[in-house]
Lab assay of single mutants.
Amino acid sequence: SEEELEEFAKEVLRRGITIIVNGIRITEVEIFVKVLREILEKR
């Protein structure tokens, strides 16, 4: 749901943790923004 997305976004921003994806360091915020864009483009 959109509320869950908002909560996830807030949690990500609070933690600001960097994770490893395919050997490249990407912040969770960047991943969230990318996923959010993909979701919005599909609408």
Rank of each mutant, 00 (worst) to 15 (best):
Arg43Leu: 15
Gly23Cys: 07
Glu6Asn: 09
Val33Ala: 02
Thr18Asp: 09
Gly23Lys: 01
Ile26Asp: 07
Glu3Val: 12
Ile39Tyr: 13
Leu13Arg: 00
Ile20Lys: 07
Gly16Tyr: 15
Glu7Asp: 08
Lys42Ser: 12
Glu28Gly: 07
Ala9Ser: 05
Val29Trp: 15
Val35Arg: 02
Arg37Phe: 09
Gly16Thr: 04
Val35Asn: 02
Glu38Ile: 08
Glu41Asp: 11
Phe32Gly: 00
Ile26Tyr: 04
Thr27Pro: 08
Thr27Trp: 08
Arg14Gly: 12
Ile39Ala: 04
Thr18Phe: 11
Phe8Gly: 02
Asn22Glu: 04
Val21Glu: 01
Ile39Cys: 02
Arg15Trp: 13
Ile31Gly: 06
Leu36Glu: 01
Thr18Arg: 14
Val35Trp: 14
Ile19Met: 01
Ile39Trp: 15
Ile19Tyr: 01
Leu5Tyr: 05
Arg25Tyr: 10
Phe8Asn: 02
Gly16His: 13
Thr27Ala: 04
Asn22Arg: 05
Glu30Cys: 00
Thr27Asn: 10
Arg15Ala: 11
Leu36Trp: 05
Gly16Asn: 08
Glu2Gln: 13
Glu7Leu: 12
Glu38Pro: 01
Val33Lys: 03
Lys34Phe: 04
Arg37Asn: 05
Glu30Gln: 10
Phe8Thr: 02
Glu38Tyr: 13
Glu41Pro: 03
Glu3Arg: 13
Arg43Ala: 12
Ile17Lys: 06
Glu4Arg: 11
Ile39Asp: 00
Ile26Gly: 03
Phe32Ser: 01
Ser1Ala: 08
Leu40Gly: 01
Glu2Phe: 15
Val33Gly: 02
Leu5Ala: 01
Ile17Thr: 09
Arg43Asn: 10
Glu30Met: 11
Leu13Val: 02
Lys34Gly: 04
Arg14Val: 04
Lys42His: 12
Ile19Lys: 00
Val33Phe: 06
Val33Thr: 02
Ile20His: 07
Asn22Trp: 09
Glu3Asn: 12
Asn22Asp: 08
Ile26Ala: 01
Val12Tyr: 08
Glu30Thr: 09
Ile19Pro: 02
Arg15Glu: 06
Arg37Met: 10
Glu7Pro: 01
Phe8Cys: 05
Leu5Gln: 04
Val33Leu: 13
Arg14Lys: 13
Ile20Thr: 11
Ala9Asn: 01
Lys34Thr: 07
Glu2Cys: 10
Glu11Thr: 06
Ile26Thr: 04
Glu7Gly: 04
Val35His: 05
Ile39Phe: 14
Ile20Asp: 02
Glu28Met: 05
Lys42Gly: 13
Lys42Cys: 08
Glu11Arg: 11
Asn22Cys: 12
Val21Gln: 03
Leu13Cys: 00
Glu11Phe: 04
Leu36His: 00
Glu41Thr: 08
Thr27Glu: 07
Val21Trp: 15
Ile31Pro: 06
Asn22Lys: 07
Leu5His: 01
Ile31Trp: 10
Ile19Thr: 01
Val33Gln: 00
Lys34Ala: 12
Gly16Trp: 15
Lys34Ser: 10
Arg43Lys: 12
Val12Gly: 01
Ile26Cys: 04
Ile19Leu: 08
Glu28Trp: 08
